[in-house]
């Protein structure tokens, strides 16, 4: 039995160099360069179709780039050993829960499949993580019986079980009511403080981004427009940045 994840040993740096990707002949990422510090909460913002989620898939290694590289803790994400060395997790926009498994089985899947703990301790760890996202008592439900927001919270609990060094969130507050969105935002910050996990968040939720990010980047048409602290980005005069940040529902 391998050792269970109790402490993640701190966050890991992420370096993205010259990332290019085209899908069906359309360029989606056009030379993305980013350097994310260990333990940082880094938010990637941008309008729909700007390449945010594709970038996230490259960072976690689900998609291979046409050119460029992603280094996690100094090692290429495409290297077979990187997942054994560094614990990573991702919260998918849809939750991506396994529909044939119960909530408890979904949350405990990582521990069970890697035989990291005895079953009783896995149950205890699952109960603890479900309590952290306010889902105590939902253990035996199937994903099909949950609302979109509850699925998202189960997905977050599933990611927390891994005690990750790198945690990626794809639109973590979409489909959540404002109170639950605030809870999730606080949980992201608490996790970063407790584990010093490197958190990369893709979102177009400006409240979330400016509320919790140490630094943020704005991506548009596959290019990074700017990178900086929330204050620095808010003060930028760049027209493309302003157009995204100042968009609102008011009539012109």
């Amino acid at each position: 039995m391998k050792s269970a994840p109790t402490s993640n040993g701190g966050g890991v740096p992420v370096v993205i160099r010259g990332l290019h990707k085209s899908l069906a002949g359309q360029p989606v990422l056009c030379g993305v360069d980013l350097a994310i510090e260990p333990g940082e909460i880094f938010v990637i913002m941008g309008p729909s179709g700007s390449g945010k989620s594709v970038l996230l898939r490259h960072i976690i290694g689900l998609t291979s780039p046409d050119a460029g590289e992603v280094l996690i803790g100094g090692e290429s994400i495409q290297s077979p050993s990187v997942r054994d060395r560094i614990r990573m997790a991702m919260v998918f926009q849809s939750g991506a829960l396994l529909n044939s498994l119960t909530v408890a089985e979904n949350v405990g899947l990582y521990l069970r499949e890697h035989a990291l703990l005895p079953p009783a301790q896995i149950d205890a760890r699952v109960a603890e993580k479900l309590a952290a996202v306010g889902l105590t008592g939902q253990e035996d439900k199937l994903p099909g019986e949950l609302s979109g927001g509850m699925k998202k919270r189960v997905a977050i609990a599933r990611a927390l079980v891994v005690e990750p060094q790198l945690l990626l969130y794809d639109e973590p507050t979409s489909e959540l009511d404002p109170m639950m969105a605030a809870t999730v935002s606080r949980e992201i910050v608490a996790l970063q403080r407790r584990l010093h996990v490197t958190s990369i968040i893709v979102s177009h939720d400006r409240d979330l981004a400016f509320g919790i990010a140490h630094r943020l980047a704005i991506i548009r048409e596959g290019r990074i427009l700017c990178v900086g602290t929330p204050e620095a980005v808010r003060a930028l005069p760049d027209a493309g940045v302003r157009e995204f940040l100042d968009a609102n529902f008011k009539h012109a």
Binding site: G61, L62, R83, D84, F92, A96, L98, N99, H114, V162
Partner: peptide
């Protein structure tokens, strides 16, 4: 159909991010 649905709804991606080989699982 079952594996195809899992692929479409990103469940297989989720397995990969947890370092669980979909071929084994």
């Amino acid at each position: 159909a079952e594996i195809g649905s899992m692929q479409v709804y990103q469940e297989i991606d989720a397995l990969r991010t947890m370092n669980i080989d979909p071929v084994r699982y």
